[in-house]
Design a protein around this nucleic acid. Structure first.
Lengths: 238, 238
DNA sequence: ACCGTACATCTTGTTCAACAATCCTTCAAT
DNA sequence: ATTGAAGGATTGTTGAACAAGATGTACGGT
């Protein structure tokens, strides 16, 4: 007769725990505002009034301020003392910085393809598949989302939760920049084939090749982005 | 006769701006708690009572909660719904994860040594110098601080503010783990010579060699850390 | 001893109201 | 046109209040 709960049984339960955590109001407000900012509902530079948003969401100012703090901490909002919270206006330097970070993290992760878990590698290919399917149907905003998932999956090759989270935040910032650009088709279409090649290298475990192609990809994308991205007021905005 | 403030004069003033920003109370409380947690004032697992700390610091619960949120966001505290804020008890998996992140970021940054700014490279060597000076004087806790600065400087070779901040947070977490270990001399002494070799490679712009030595360094340090680091309760603590 | 219940207690989650400090706007004066 | 001063609006911070959830303890049943 079994004596009690084994460690194995306990850890099986522990995996379910994330599904039943009831988040606080502040966390839910944060999540909601985060997606809205990422989706481009509030244009860069918009001031997020405590009173207006608090009333709209039906939460108190204090709770809302907790949410604002978190958003500022992950750079999806900027705080100006005694002036309030603003949707960030990312500079060209920010673009450069984000791509430097991506080259470092995604490049390094891609190089580890050979020793990465197979599920992680399959996720990379699944991202390319989704992008191609959406492109074939002409849904280019969906292509953008799939592309970001693709790069998230590349970072996940490192097998590190902290790297995953870092990448999630960096790509969220990047979304802010993308929203300032007009046509997703023009930007993403040229990279579909290159994505496929990178994914295949990763599937084969050829990290060297994947990294090389990825670094070239990122440098090209950065250049293309900088060519068309100009912030209105480069001085006092931030 | 000069007509007025030129753009050059204005940008000179703009550089001073960071020196006169008056932070909010919540930010100052965050900074204060952050250093206290990093310095090991509160042992891992300690519950940070809102009432006790709020009274001790003379700030209201609402302000304190804003600070707690930020600390949770940078993993220097963990939040349990309806239970409060706790100093994190890092698991062995956390150690592994942090070192995976370090290998990725520091390794990638070291590889860029050849194209990094000279000031950044000098900062790396300055870190080693400080560590050796402190070691010669037997001040091993100072050696630890210098060592962390050394690694921060390596990450800074990437020239990315976002990478710098990432590294700052990762090393802050690592400090939490170091506090669980007894003797800083035993841990850091063996690495002084290797630090010097890495710094010289970086000064010479030999990124390949620096990365190789650094990765070996990090793997050894991780192994040594895991050999002695065991958390008391691996299950319910977090 | 073990399990479950019920109750008292403590802490956190959240809101509300108030006031001080700061910023923005407007307008008058030089 | 630039400066100064008044006024209004918004944020920064506090204190109190109540609801909701968690912990601890005692009690009774098996």
């Amino acid at each position: 007769m079994p004596a009690g709960i084994t460690g194995e049984m306990a850890s099986a339960l522990a995996r379910d725990r994330s599904g039943l955590v009831h988040a606080s109001t502040a966390d839910r407000v944060t999540e909601l505002l985060r997606t809205h900012i990422m989706e481009g509902l509030f244009p860069p530079g918009t001031r997020l009034s405590e009173e207006v948003i608090g009333q709209a969401l039906g939460v108190s100012r204090n709770t809302l301020r907790e949410a604002f703090r978190l958003l500022c901490h992950e750079r999806l909002a900027v705080h100006q003392m005694n002036r309030g919270i603003f949707v960030p206006v990312l500079s060209r330097a920010d673009v450069t910085d984000i791509y430097a970070l991506r080259r470092l993290v995604e490049g390094g992760a891609a190089r580890l393809a050979g020793s990465a878990a197979m599920t992680a590698r399959l996720a990379v290919r699944a991202g390319v598949d989704a992008a191609e399917t959406a492109a074939a149907a002409g849904r280019w905003f969906e292509v953008r989302t799939a592309d970001l998932h693709f790069h998230q999956a590349i970072a996940a090759l490192a097998g590190s939760p902290r790297v995953d989270e870092l990448m999630r935040r960096a790509l969220a910032e990047l979304r802010l920049i993308f929203h300032a650009m007009a046509d997703p088709e023009q930007f993403h279409a040229p990279y579909l084939g290159r994505n496929r090649a990178i994914a295949e290298s990763i599937m084969l475990g050829d990290g060297e090749s994947a990294e090389k192609d990825l670094l070239a990809y990122l440098s090209d994308a950065e250049r293309q982005l900088l060519a068309v991205y100009h912030v209105p007021a480069p001085d006092a905005a931030k």
